[in-house]
C-alpha cells in the first residue's frame, strides 16, 4: 500500500487520516494507456470498444445509485417509482456483461493460480494458451446460445411488466459481452503463442513477483 500523494504534507490530522486511509485507487485502470492486441485499424476499434465498456461500467453504477435513491424519495413523497426495480435489473445485466469483457481485457477475472504458479515456465506458457483457447471457446458457445435466447425472447414478445418495453432490450448485452470476452481470450491465446512472455490478457503480463494485479 503506498501512501496517498494527493496533498502536500501538512500536519493536519485530516490529511494524516487521508494518508493513512487505505486506497484502492493505486491500481485503477488508466484507459488512456490501454494498448490493443489487434493491429492497425482493428486496434483502433478495439481501443474504442474498451473506452465504451469503461464508460458503460461507470455510468451503470452511477445510474443504479441514482435510480435506487430516487425510488426512496418517491416513496417518501407517496409516488413509488414502480419501474425502479426493473431499471436496476437492466443496469446490473449491462454492468455484468460490459464488465466481463473489460475484465478479460485487463486480466482481472478471478482464478485459482496456486498450482499453475508452481509449474515451470514453458509448461505455464503452454497452459496459458490452453486456458485462453478453452475459455474463448466457452465464451463463443455462450455467445451463440445467448443470441438464441435473446431472439427467442424477442419472438415471444415478453414485456417488462412495469417498464412496458420488450424484455430482450435489456438482455441483449449478454451475447455482446460473451462475444467480446471470447475475442479477448482469443487474442490472449495468440499473444502467448507469438510472444516469449506469459500474458494474462493482451495488455497484462503474468507476473513473477508478488505484486497484486496479475494474481487475481
Amino acid at each position: 500500500m503506498t501512501l496517498d500523494d494527493k496533498h502536500a504534507p501538512e500536519p493536519d490530522p485530516d490529511v494524516v487520516a487521508a494518508a493513512k486511509a487505505a486506497s484502492i485507487d493505486d491500481d485503477d485502470i488508466d484507459d488512456s494507456k490501454y494498448v490493443s492486441g489487434l493491429p492497425g485499424f482493428l486496434g483502433v476499434i478495439d481501443v474504442g470498444i474498451a473506452r465504451i465498456e469503461a464508460i458503460l461500467l461507470a455510468a451503470g453504477v452511477l445510474l443504479m445509485a441514482i435510480n435506487t435513491m430516487a425510488n426512496v424519495v418517491g416513496r417518501v413523497v407517496g409516488h413509488t417509482l414502480y419501474f425502479s426495480e426493473e431499471v436496476n435489473q437492466a443496469l446490473i445485466i449491462l454492468i455484468t456483461f460490459a464488465g466481463i469483457s473489460y475484465a478479460a481485457r485487463h486480466g482481472r477475472h478471478i482464478r485459482m493460480s496456486a498450482f499453475f504458479d508452481a509449474l515451470p515456465f514453458p509448461l505455464r506458457r503452454a497452459m496459458m494458451v490452453l486456458i485462453a483457447v478453452i475459455t474463448a471457446a466457452a465464451m463463443f458457445l455462450l455467445t451463440w446460445y445467448s443470441l438464441d435466447y435473446v431472439l427467442s425472447q424477442a419472438s415471444r414478445g415478453r414485456l417488462m411488466p412495469a417498464l412496458n418495453i420488450p424484455q430482450w432490450w435489456i438482455i441483449v448485452w449478454a451475447p455482446m459481452g460473451f462475444f467480446l470476452t471470447g475475442l479477448q481470450y482469443t487474442l490472449t491465446a495468440i499473444k502467448n503463442v507469438i510472444d516469449k512472455d506469459i500474458w494474462l490478457s493482451t495488455s497484462t503480463l503474468e507476473g513473477y513477483d508478488d505484486s497484486r494485479e496479475e494474481e487475481i
Binding site: D25, D28, I29, A58, G99, I100, I110
Partner: peptide, 24 residues
C-alpha cells in the same frame, strides 16, 4: 477529497468488481 475524475474511476472500478463477481 474527491473530484469528478476520481468519482468516474471509482464507479468504473466498482462496475469491474461487480462484473467479475456477478458472472460467477
Amino acid at each position: 477529497e474527491m473530484d469528478l475524475r476520481t468519482l468516474y474511476a471509482t464507479a468504473k472500478s466498482t462496475g469491474l468488481i461487480t462484473a467479475v463477481v456477478f458472472i460467477l
